Measured scan of single mutants.
Amino acid sequence: MALNTPQITPTKKITVRAIGEELPRGDYQRCPQCDMLFSLPEINSHQSAYCPRCQAKIRDGRDWSLTRLAAMAFTMLLLMPFAWGEPLLHIWLLGIRIDANVMQGIWQMTKQGDAITGSMVFFCVIGAPLILVTSIAYLWFGNRLGMNLRPVLLMLERLKEWVMLDIYLVGIGVASIKVQDYAHIQAGVGLFSFVALVILTTVTLSHLNVEELWERFYPQRPATRRDEKLRVCLGCHFTGYPDQRGRCPRCHIPLRLRRRHSLQKCWAALLASIVLLLPANLLPISIIYLNGGRQEDTILSGIMSLASSNIAVAGIVFIASILVPFTKVIVMFTLLLSIHFKCQQGLRTRILLLRMVTWIGRWSMLDLFVISLTMSLINRDQILAFTMGPAAFYFGAAVILTILAVEWLDSRLLWDAHESGNARFDD
């Protein structure tokens, strides 16, 4: 018995066209964080690309023209004298008006014999932002004059995390709450300039795509075929072959399989920071003279006294001054041990922890910024005066060393310790 099946006739004509040209192939790229070699397709503007294995951002879609970056830099340069030299806060102490600005706080630190601690604050609040705007201006002028731009481009990517104007702005709020127990506070004209400078700096850093600047100024022929001998440069993120001198053909720094002496430098910085954190938390970090009496505060006791007036601000200072430094030390110690013992479990967790400490590390400088600003506000000789204690130097040095330890660690070593050939990683 035959089955009668109805015929289905399409209502619209289906047209099949042959592909007349070869589909576009992607360029081969190595991930600078996990060293995976993959094919990167062509990316349009405002599109980002991520590593298929570790999800690290390979290409950032946010990109401004150099002219727009230069305009932002010149605007920031105009704001800087007002943000640093004009009063941020006014207080009335014992019937006398006192003005506080950024430069005055750094000068008070240096004047009291601790120039190293003052230079830490100076670099993060004044030096690094000033280098940022002058570097962008150098790129703008240098591109037109045919100057060598490689050193500036190499420095810009590392400079971003040292620009800490946003953290200093939080420190202004913390210092205001600490001082309000002794005097009446009012915002100064410099505060508005400083807030504007923070906003412009944040926007500029978020749109400063150094890798795209490398592509514009020093374009290189990408690798179009897969080759395990391809290496990625950690300076400019170019994937290719080393030249005859073993250097990256684009930025001219040595092109090595792994960062040289990464573990040794990381261990040295980490152990030194552990040693410095002990006096930083045991010795007094601030000293207040009130009517001839002397009151010393460690980091913890200062947080407890701050909690009596504002528990939320005390929580912020606790996280930045105690929780973050010790968390960074514990995480980095764990990561280094996992590399030495070739741990194969929990790779995803370790990668996330490394990215976390990379982002939060700079916030530990908050305590030094609060001390710097408070020193310029309260300084009335023996009637009422505020000065920093010996722990300030140890704390600042420990924070900087932990930042350097994270920067010096080559994250690809975590993958080397893991089993080879993993296309995915999980716990």
Rank of each mutant, 00 (worst) to 15 (best):
M1Y: 00
Q7M: 05
V16M: 08
V16K: 07
I19A: 07
L23Y: 10
G26T: 07
Q29R: 08
D35T: 03
M36I: 12
L37G: 07
L37K: 07
S39K: 06
P41W: 03
A49W: 10
C51L: 00
A56G: 08
I58W: 07
I58E: 03
R59A: 09
R59C: 05
R59K: 06
D60R: 07
G61K: 11
L66C: 06
T67G: 08
R68K: 03
A71P: 02
M76D: 02
L77W: 07
L78Q: 02
L78V: 04
P81N: 08
P81C: 03
A83F: 02
E86N: 06
L88W: 02
L88V: 03
H90I: 04
W92C: 02
W92K: 02
I98N: 03
D99C: 07
D99K: 10
A100L: 02
M103N: 03
W107P: 08
T117W: 01
M120P: 02
F122S: 04
F123W: 08
C124Y: 02
I126C: 11
I131T: 14
L132R: 02
V133W: 03
Y138D: 01
L139H: 01
N143M: 14
N143A: 15
R144H: 12
L145E: 02
G146W: 03
L159F: 02
E161P: 15
E161W: 03
M164S: 04
L165G: 15
I167A: 04
L169V: 11
G171A: 12
V174S: 12
A175E: 02
S176G: 07
V179I: 08
Q180L: 13
Q180H: 11
A183L: 02
H184M: 08
L191W: 03
F192P: 06
S193D: 03
V195W: 05
L197N: 04
L205D: 14
H207K: 09
H207P: 15
L208W: 10
L208T: 07
N209H: 10
L213M: 15
E215G: 14
E215T: 13
R216Q: 13
P219C: 14
T224M: 13
R225Y: 13
D227S: 15
D227G: 13
C236F: 00
H237C: 12
F238H: 12
T239P: 10
T239E: 01
T239M: 08
T239A: 12
G246K: 14
R247T: 09
C248F: 00
R250T: 12
I253G: 03
L257N: 12
A268V: 03
L271W: 12
A272P: 02
V275I: 14
L277P: 02
N281P: 02
N281Y: 04
R294T: 04
R294G: 04
Q295I: 07
S301P: 04
S301V: 05
M304S: 12
S309A: 10
A312T: 15
G315Y: 15
I316W: 06
V317N: 00
P325D: 09
V329F: 11
L335K: 06
F341V: 10
F341T: 11
F341N: 12
K342E: 11
Q344K: 12
R350P: 09
L352T: 13
W359N: 11
I360Y: 08
S364C: 02
L366R: 00
D367G: 00
L368F: 02
L368I: 10
V370R: 00
T374W: 02
L377G: 01
R380I: 02
R380P: 00
D381E: 07
Q382R: 09
Q382N: 15
L384N: 01
L384H: 01
F386R: 00
M388L: 03
M388H: 10
V399Q: 04
L401N: 11
S411M: 06
L413D: 05
L413P: 06
L414E: 03
W415V: 07
D416F: 11
